Simulated scan of single mutants.
Amino acid sequence: MNRKQRGAATEGDVTGAERGWFGRLRAQPGFRTAFVAFCLTVILGVGAPAAYALWSSSVRGMVTVQTVKPPLPVITGSVQCMQRTILGVVSMRYSAPSAAAMPEGVYVTAVISVPDRSEPIYYAVPNTGSFNLKDLHGLGEYIGGSLSGKRISVTVSTVRLDQAPQALPSEIQAAAIRDQADAAPPAEPAYFYLSYQCNRL
């Protein structure tokens, strides 16, 4: 080979230093296979967080569906005002739901309204089928004006509360009620004049 031929071969050949780091890497045996495997790993890796997020969302949706609260039991029949004497102990009778129908956190409430008050007062009462009006602490102060006489109305419902009352019966705030039964018995009238009465004056 003469000098001219040797010069042409030198110009057409690129040395490792002239190729740069990518050129040298590309010249390694098995580069293409390794590059394809690397690209697949990156593509699948990018899709993994999206797939995990979709799976997590599906699991949360399934858990939410499974933990839906059951409907509250509805008290049937009517509320009745009962007393043995004119100024005796007055009790309100109702059809108590069975213990099996009362899930945890659900209570029977007495809802008492007075015509000249815009908001009723709520009491959590025992699920025994009756309660005495005199046992509802603070009810007399809520009614007020005992000398002029006050007509009141009482109904009974079931509610789900944020936290359990310390004792029964116990006054509860409307804000503590998370859920209330869809229906309740019609209100039963009573009367307060020095004491509780059932007579309809």
Rank of each mutant, 00 (worst) to 15 (best):
V156C: 03
P186V: 10
V125H: 06
V90C: 07
R151I: 01
S56Y: 08
T67P: 00
K4V: 12
P169A: 07
M62Y: 10
G149K: 00
E141K: 09
T67L: 12
E141T: 14
Y142K: 05
I172C: 05
S130E: 12
C81T: 07
T109A: 11
I172V: 15
S130H: 10
P115M: 08
Y123R: 05
D13L: 07
T158E: 01
Q163L: 06
M102R: 05
G138K: 03
L161E: 01
K150A: 15
Y122T: 02
Q66A: 15
L194I: 07
R151Y: 04
K150R: 15
L54W: 09
V14E: 15
V63L: 12
Y193W: 13
I75N: 06
R117N: 08
Y107R: 07
T41N: 14
V114G: 01
V42D: 11
S95V: 11
F192R: 04
G129R: 03
I112S: 07
I152S: 03
D116F: 09
A174T: 07
P185D: 04
T76L: 12
Y193N: 11
A184V: 08
L201S: 11
L139P: 00
G23V: 03
Q197G: 07
Q5N: 12
K150C: 02
P120H: 06
A53W: 10
N199L: 14
S146A: 13
I121C: 01
